[in-house]
């Protein structure tokens, strides 16, 4: 029972970070119809920058975290301006391939600058575990869960009430109508990419903090977010928020109970098996907009 609860908790915490990074996916997809395969590299890059600022330049964690966010926002804008804008109107394969190319490029930069070995991440969370009922829970988990929850609320309010948020939803609904209403679609695209880069960087820092270490392999997290957003529906923010914990719990249960039977690796492959099932039965996800175009 305790084992089960532990798995459940792990799943919810990791799943909440899935939700956060998934939010970045959905924001980009909704407004620009691009699936960003470089999301994992955004995540790793953000974590590395925070690590370098904190460890090498001895910037207090709070400020290095803010600097990381500023850098990520800038990187998102530049990515959109330099790489994605010339691709507007190109077929889907080109859009997919350009983000894959971007992912290779960023991976090379990360590997060239920081190498491939695992680096210890500064202890940003207090080490002492808290007892919840019978279960010892690390404080990092709780802090991470709470910050993701706060962020998701902030973003939901942002999309619902602020001018920029409403403009983004309008752009996602129809680019032509938004243009004729005086919304700068270009600016919205840039905003979407910078939001995606920022949430990925936050996810990266939280994840590295929980793991206590950081290496390039963490970029795989970006690919594992794809099943999450497909489960929730690619164009649904609520879907990303709900899909994250579901996928986190499922993969942790698979890892906990199937790994001894198959000899490891079940946790990594489980989201993709679930993905195939979703695509077979409900390809537009739990909350996705159903586009009726059958062939």
């Amino acid at each position: 029972m305790e084992f089960f609860l532990q798995l459940l908790l792990n799943g919810i915490v990791v799943g909440s970070i899935y939700s956060l990074v998934g939010l970045g996916f959905v924001v980009i997809y909704k407004s620009t119809s691009v699936l960003n395969f470089a999301q994992g590299e955004f995540l790793v890059l953000g974590a590395y920058i925070c690590l370098t600022l904190t460890v090498q330049y001895h910037v207090p964690f709070f400020w290095s975290f803010l600097l990381t966010l500023a850098f990520s926002a800038l990187m998102g804008i530049l990515t959109e301006r330099i790489i994605l804008r010339p691709m507007i109107g190109e077929p889907v394969i080109s859009l997919i391939m350009v983000t894959l190319g971007l992912s290779s490029l960023l991976k090379a930069i990360i590997q060239g600058v920081w190498g491939t070995e695992l680096r210890p991440f500064p202890d940003i969370f207090p080490a002492e575990p808290v007892k919840i009922g019978p279960l010892p829970v690390s404080q990092g988990y709780l802090i991470s869960l709470a910050s993701v929850a706060v962020l998701l609320v902030i973003f939901t309010l942002f999309f619902k009430f602020t001018r920029a948020g409403v403009a983004m939803r309008a752009t996602a609904f129809s680019q032509q109508v938004s243009l004729s209403m005086g919304i700068s679609v270009k600016r919205i695209f840039a905003l979407a990419w910078s939001i995606a880069a920022v949430v990925s960087a936050i996810g990266g820092v939280l994840l590295a903090g929980i793991r206590g270490g950081l290496d390039g392999a963490m970029a795989f997290f970006g690919l594992k977010v794809i099943p999450v957003v497909i489960l929730g529906g690619l164009d649904s923010i609520a879907g990303a928020i709900v899909g994250g914990p579901i996928m986190g719990i499922l993969e942790n249960l698979a890892g906990g109970y199937l790994d001894p039977l198959v000899g490891g690796g079940a946790k990594e492959v489980a989201p993709f098996v679930i993905l195939v099932l979703i695509l077979g039965f409900k390809p537009y996800g739990l909350f996705g907009k159903i586009k009726i175009e059958r062939v």
């Binding site: 889907v92 099943p227 993709f272 098996v273 195939v276 695509l279």
Partner: peptide, 28 residues
């Protein structure tokens, strides 16, 4: 078979899943 219902992005994602499932199978 997913390509019968899925297009573009969704198909790319389905083949991505195929990759990891095959990789899991051959390594186990």
């Amino acid at each position: 078979i997913p390509s019968l219902r899925l297009k573009g992005l969704y198909l790319a994602v389905a083949t991505l899943a195929a990759h990891y499932i095959v990789e899991f199978t051959v390594s186990h």
